[in-house]
């Protein structure tokens, strides 16, 4: 317990000081966006036990929405982010309502199929810019006042949202609702027999997860100034699964670490080995799944012999 406290303090200090000690802010912002995405995904896989294979849909839908609202309608960034999240929540509600009754692989297939539909819609529509996507999205002024075009300002904005999401997920897991989610994961028929409509609990968890995935996508658009087809592509859905499993599913910090590793590898290797980066990441994934079932953080927890009383 004490060790993790120190780790968190050190990480918090590092995060606050990052721009001052010469860490490239856009890189850290990218990392944080994907960390939010992976944490959102983990809420579903780790704490609800549902494997969605189409989470890029919510990330991407919000990415496009925020891009469109800022670029074309000139909304302020915070409202445009809320717009992106609202769409992600709404799509999550629709997809969830259709898929939640299905078990295991069928659930994964439905979420994948619906995400692929969204991909083709984004490819065809004028609104989303087809193959080019939305380019040149300005960051705008936060609350109409504070310009986000400065990378350092934008960085602290993203960091603040990341911390909020991280704490929110902890709260969700340790809430009356989280307690029922855990009961459902542990023994679903028993939860039903005690009078809980398990599908509604799963649906709420699904919508919470898609909403936060949307926040990640919206932020990503503002950080980079574009939303493209790769945001809704199935490989993006795969990447978030990879990040979560690599870091440790069902642990609070695992997805953050997993996102960090994948983003760091992509950024550092892409110009050296080109598309081989996918092969390298794939190989890491295979090793991870075979050797460290619980992911890096999960294995570390097991190693330090800490009883997972929480999670």
């Amino acid at each position: 317990m004490r060790l993790t406290t120190y780790v968190y303090i050190a990480l918090a200090a590092l995060a606050v000081l990052a721009p001052l000690i010469g860490l490239y802010p856009v890189f850290v912002m990218k990392l944080l966006c994907f960390a939010i995405f992976a944490c959102a995904f983990n809420l579903l896989l780790g704490y609800t036990g549902l494997l969605s294979f189409g989470h890029a849909a919510y990330f991407g839908a919000a990415a496009y929405t925020t891009g469109y609202l800022v670029k074309t309608l000139h909304w302020t960034p915070e409202v445009a982010i809320l717009g992106g999240m609202a769409l992600a929540a709404f799509s999550g509600l629709i997809v969830g309502a259709m898929a939640i009754r299905r078990q295991g692989i069928y659930f994964a297939m439905i979420t994948l199929a619906l995400a692929q539909m969204l991909y083709f819609v984004c490819l065809q529509l004028k609104l989303t810019g087809g193959e080019d996507g939305l380019q040149g999205v300005p960051r705008g002024n936060l609350f109409g006042m504070l310009s986000l075009s400065n990378d350092t300002t934008m960085y602290y904005f993203v960091l603040a949202l990341f911390v909020t999401v991280f704490l929110l997920i902890r709260r969700i897991v340790h809430s009356p609702f989280g307690q029922i989610l855990k009961a459902i994961r542990e023994n679903e028929p028993r939860a039903v027999s005690l009078g809980y409509d398990v599908e509604r609990y799963k649906l709420l968890a699904f919508v919470l997860s898609t909403t936060l995935a949307g926040l990640a996508g919206s932020l990503k658009t503002l950080v980079f100034g574009f939303a493209t087809l790769s945001d809704v592509h199935w490989s993006m859905s795969g990447e978030v699964i990879l990040m979560t499993l690599l870091g440790g599913v069902g642990t609070f910090f695992g997805p953050v670490l997993g996102a960090g590793i994948v983003v760091a590898l992509q950024d550092n290797l892409a110009d050296k080995v080109g598309s081989w980066v996918s092969v390298i990441i794939g190989a890491i994934f295979v090793v991870c799944v075979m050797a460290f079932r619980r992911g890096l953080v999960g294995e570390a927890q097991a190693f330090f012999g800490r009883k997972k009383k929480t999670a």
Binding site: I172, H174, P176, F177, R200
Partner: peptide, 10 residues
């Protein structure tokens, strides 16, 4: 009756 309250502390 608070089982949907995901914002409430445990």
């Amino acid at each position: 009756g608070n089982s949907y309250r995901f914002w409430q502390p445990e």
